[in-house]
Nucleic acid binder design. Structure first.
Lengths: 349, 349
DNA sequence: TTGACTAATGACAGCGCTGTCATTACTCCG
DNA sequence: CGGAGTAATGACAGCGCTGTCATTAGTCAA
């Protein structure tokens, strides 16, 4: 690596201004609001920028304008494929906006989340996207006082902080119970790990609907605080079989658990779907290809990321349409072989 | 949301200085190099910072020092679980450093990567982590000229740009071929999607070793440019069965493909491992639980992320130990049932 | 005691940009 | 044809911090 050059050879606005024969402020304007600069100047400036290879200095801009172009994104996990799909949506949508994303990982801890909210806010971000609607009271207060757009994602609530993009976990879970019922199953179980707020809502959605239908039995609710994974699915299924071997169908709080159930059931020679209906949650890519193909709830993860960014960008722009500030997306049950006893053969969806 | 306060009420270095009865520069020093400030001052300053709730203004600091605390990370994909594990390692390691990560997604495109390198460099990052060793010539030149630490990850090479944390894809692939041979398989196939440079190296490692052992047959090499996924694994396996039904074992360029092969083989009633040995690459969590458990190469993804950050942090610090600048990690073959015809029962590893 | 050091602190300027307001050169209507 | 209005541009100061160098006080061997 060569020694650092003594004096910065960075191309600045002034250099461009000199090259184009205008003042620095005009160049600045030309970049931020081209329509306010006359066409001939604009062309000269653009040419100068290209010729000199000028790149704006973000820090200087942030300092002078007291604004950044940072969009903060707080997720509970970066490895969980649920959030990596959201991330993908965010990245794809961000490009058109000129913003840059900064991701933070709260590790499913509300207090860590609160700290991260503080850290982000100290940076005066252009916007903030947070996962879920269950911030700590302090965290919520901070976000309400923030003078930037805030989007809560992946859940719904009656009193969002600001904007919201999500779907109902409660309703999704309830629809799974009804589906099991329609397929002739009568003794539904539920498996859940990592009891974060959204998992808990799914459990209560399941419970409420099962009670309504008169088929709820608490022995068939098996949960753990441990992290959600395929291995955990195997384990929870073993626990279920020990506690309530009469269960005839099982709703897994996510596809990872459901895959574990499918594998463990195969090892125990429990036939799915005949002897056991299985339903997951999220619709990962693999779920369509496993044997038997897994019935699951397809959650709009990519779209959530995309829309959240769109909302922030819109709020930053001139006219904010109040109408669109709360986006309730649909999570759809995808019925495959694992929950249809009438299934006839091994066909991937 | 309340209206923005007319005048910024941000607590500045000057406020803290006044509160502590010292000059601003001493406060600045106290934060960045506490050992250069006398203990009594230090205590007063710290107390003032706490009392006022001072948070440094990163942009101002970056502008004045011509340095940022941004660690740029360029990965080909944010959804691919391979890179999300790296990410996790990066996030866990970054906390101790005071740096902040900025992730960019090159979508497996060398030209996009080059653009991202430019963008990052324009921000004068504290360090840069890039995936692989196959940057474009221009990209490489940019990185070589960069006056910040650069770490290439996930691969090895004889002439790294600066620092490196990786493992040999070539050797890993070769070891798989030998393993198949030892288990009695004689007609190995390889399946690969998304022919990025590292996949290609694995293919050539496979090829070279198979040739050396006299068991190579080009009919048994099936590749596609499409993205790597479970569904693609099913498809590629179908293609293989059409082209070379005599294959008795298959090395899949990653675990997703291997899972697809496992599922498709089950549907075709091809017994694994008796009639077909299967080996994946990466060792995802699910691979230990699928039926039969999948033999695969465990790649040190988390550790790679961790070490890369550690290297950057070390390089930023005072003494850089030249010795440790190139970390060659080990990718280890994990032998499970899917490649052992002598396998006796369904047990997860 | 003195000169030569080190430790601790401060003064000053300026990093590169943008908000604010002023200025200039127009256009257009009555 | 004059005054009001608008479009295009510029001057200036300052955002909050840190690099550089200067200054002061304290330490120690000769």
């Amino acid at each position: 690596m060569p020694a650092k050059t003594k004096h910065s050879n960075r191309v600045t606005l002034d250099d461009v201004a000199r090259e184009a024969g205008v003042s620095a402020i005009t160049v600045s304007r030309c970049i931020r609001a081209p329509e306010k600069v006359a066409a001939p100047s604009r062309l000269r400036i653009q040419a100068a920028i290209d010729r000199l290879g000028y790149v704006p200095h973000m820090a200087a801009s942030a300092l002078a304008s007291r604004r950044t172009n940072v969009l903060g994104l707080i997720v509970p996990s970066v490895t969980n494929s649920v959030f990596s799909d959201v991330l993908l949506g965010v990245y794809d949508a961000i490009e058109a906006t000129g913003l840059s994303v900064q991701i933070a990982n709260s590790r499913y801890s509300p207090s860590e989340e609160e700290t991260l909210i503080r850290t982000f806010l100290a940076q005066r971000p252009a916007g903030l996207i947070v996962s879920g609607v269950d911030q700590t009271p302090t965290g919520r207060a901070l976000l309400e006082a923030a003078d930037c757009p805030v989007v809560q994602i992946m859940d719904v609530t009656d009193n969002p902080i600001d904007m919201l993009v999500g779907f109902s976990h409660f309703d999704s879970a309830a629809s799974v119970v009804r589906h099991f019922m329609e397929q002739g199953y009568r003794r539904p179980a539920i498996l859940s790990a990592r009891m974060d707020p959204r998992s808990q809502v799914r459990v209560s959605g399941f419970r409420r609907e099962a009670e309504r239908l008169g088929i709820f039995d608490p022995r068939r609710v098996v949960t753990t605080q441990g992290r959600s994974s395929v291995g955990t699915g195997c384990q929870l299924f073993a626990d279920l079989m020990a506690r309530a071997p009469d269960a005839d169908c099982v709703f897994c709080n996510n596809d990872d658990l459901a895959l574990g159930v499918l594998f463990e059931a195969a090892r125990r020679n429990i036939r799915v779907p005949e002897a056991l209906g299985v339903c997951g949650f999220n619709d990962l890519e693999i779920s369509a290809y496993v044997n038997p193909p897994l019935t699951t709830v397809a959650t709009p993860r990519y779209r959530t990321g995309q829309e959240a960014v769109r909302l922030v960008a819109a709020a930053l722009g001139p006219g904010v349409e109040e109408a669109e500030r709360h986006l309730r997306l649909e999570a759809k049950l995808v019925v495959r072989a694992s929950s249809q006893p009438g299934w006839t053969g091994p066909t991937a969806t």
